[in-house]
Design a protein around this nucleic acid. Structure first.
Lengths: 349, 349
DNA sequence: CTGAAAGCGCTAACAC
DNA sequence: GTGTTAGCGCTTTCAG
């Protein structure tokens, strides 16, 4: 670990018999006025010394850190989640293309209590922030008022005026309902995720909207919380069919719960889709590989992440003033949905 | 976006009628010599102004960035991977506990070509680096020679002398082989991941070791590359059983491929574990929820990540000189392995 | 065409 | 007890 002392711009200046200014000018291509000879001399010294300007000093000077923050909620191993992972990948990629780097923070209670989310800006850690997995309970978001570049990714927060980029979850709900209804299902169950998430509300609204229009209802007895997890989805599906064995289809608020639901249904001897159809939402990579492959609503998560990052950069460079975008979703039909079997109790409302 | 101007230590000094030094002293608790009254005055000014020291300036001064880097290889959406996600979660958590923040970088070809991995240190972005998903082809790691705090996480690199923390994959291979042999399997297939990964070699060595000792062999005809993906695992399993229908068990180098293998086996009409047993390696969260629940080798990934981060911090603060650790693994029996059915061709070598 | 000097916000010797 | 000053490494006026 024999850390050789870092070489600074001073060393380059000395080595090339030029002044600090000249070196800086050359390195920043502000060298319209620098003679070719001097330029060469400086560049060769830079090369020889392996000099690279300190980003710390540059940032102090420019008052821009060159970092973007990603704030995720505290979950079981926050980053071991495909949904967040996909968003983070998209954000990282977009940031890197624009010479920004990404900082990762987890908003646990202690973190928020100590106002670490505010320190992110106050202490000049970052130039902009992307908030993932936000819920309507996250009142701390209010602290970002309107004087910091912050974008809520794939969500909105009711009552807080923040920029966002999201998928059209109301439409996702409508598509799911339409698909199941067109197959002929009448008694449809619904497994939702955290109700304090705004897009969860959107999804349900869209879903119920179609059901209502077709004179089918969504009684609370056909509704269960799946906690956005596989375990939760399994438990919810079992609860649903235990309470109302006539249910022939289930719409799950995300794919994880849908996969759990399929597993739960199997446990109680129900076949998918023969006895019960299951449709998810998200279209995670794994959806294609479950048994049966999951019919789901494709949400362009990666694109949303990339777009959110791009727009945040625009916000930072004042190329944009305000950002509110909603991206289209689509149906991805696989094998977990089918028409209900005739003559079964499920076919009669 | 009416960004009110940032308040600096100068403002606090003015507001509290004290000097910069005094303010700094108070804030850093080096205030043994400061009078109680002054102290109060400073603190109240800090409070009133909402002052927080700039990390940029502090870092420039202290020559420590307070950041740790995580370098991951370029994969399809690098962070949408449970394995990396788990490591990153562990690292982030440990870093946060020690007042460090995490920077995320993806080592794509362009990145490496431009020596961005070296800039990480040269330009003072980070104080230490954790490399994930490393292979023996990653010669750029050599650039970190021995003058930077770098730890390879859950791997080693053949021929490059770098610190590492890893699971005992040789033992994992031995445990898997022993489990299958004890169940009575004779013809065992093996699906491996990228062979340029050192731990893959370890795993195979351990696996073959046991097989050889029991006078069972692992001919290349019973070996397939599963590319560390589900799709690859499915294809590999199908290839394996097509070539040698006598195979009654498969060991997969990771859970993802094992899950793919199960899906592939189903496609060709094989039941798991009735016709073919499948054992994975990793024990990812999802392993419990596939159908059938996956028997696998539990590797303490989270612990490895946390430990690697802790040791990196020790390296940085010179509390440690060199780091080489190997963590124990264990068998997690679920439902995807069973004794081979009697009288089947698989039972005779 | 080039360089001296100020300043970004902070810490720490060193006075007083 | 408290303040002055230099300096961390860089960019950028402003002179020359």
């Amino acid at each position: 670990m024999a850390k050789r002392k870092a070489v600074s711009i001073k060393d380059v200046a000395r080595e090339s018999n030029a002044s600090l200014t000249t070196v800086s000018l050359v390195l920043n291509n502000r060298d319209g006025r620098i003679s070719r000879a001097t330029r060469e001399r400086v560049l060769s010294a830079v090369e020889r010394l392996g000099y690279r300007p300190s980003r710390l000093a540059q940032s102090l000077q420019s008052q821009r850190s060159g970092f973007l923050g990603i704030l995720v909620p505290q979950l079981r191993h926050a980053f071991a989640d495909i949904y967040f992972g996909e968003l983070i990948s998209a954000i990282q990629e977009t940031a890197a293309e624009n010479d920004y780097k990404i900082i990762l923070d987890v908003a646990n209670p202690r973190y928020l209590e100590r106002n670490h989310h505010l320190e992110l800006f106050r202490r000049h850690y970052i130039d902009g922030l992307l908030c993932l997995g936000v819920t309507n309970n996250d009142t701390y978001l209010d602290d970002f008022s309107d004087d910091h570049p912050v974008i809520v990714v794939n969500n909105r927060v009711a009552g807080i005026d923040l920029d966002f980029v999201q998928c059209d979850y109301a439409e996702a709900g409508r598509i799911a309902a339409t698909h199941l209804c067109e197959l002929g299902h009448k008694k449809i169950g619904y497994i939702h995720g955290a109700t304090e998430v705004q897009t969860t509300a959107d999804l349900r609204d869209g879903f119920e909207d179609v059901l209502n229009r077709l004179k089918l209802s969504l009684p609370t007895s056909r509704t269960e919380d799946g906690l956005y997890t596989e375990e939760g989805g399994a438990a919810a599906a079992i609860a649903l069919l235990t309470r109302d064995p006539g249910i022939t289809a289930i719409f799950s608020g995300n794919d994880k719960m849908a996969i759990g639901a399929i597993s739960g249904l199997k446990q109680i001897g129900k076949r998918v889709p023969d006895d019960v159809s299951v449709i998810g939402c998200d279209d995670i990579h794994h959806a294609e590989f479950c048994d049966p492959p999951l019919t789901t609503i494709h949400t362009p998560i990666f694109e949303v992440g990339a777009r959110a990052c791009k727009l945040l950069l625009d916000l930072i460079s004042s190329k944009a003033e305000s950002v509110r975008e909603t991206q289209a979703v689509s149906l991805s039909v696989r094998k977990s949905t089918a028409a209900p079997r005739k003559g079964r109790n499920g076919a009669t409302q």
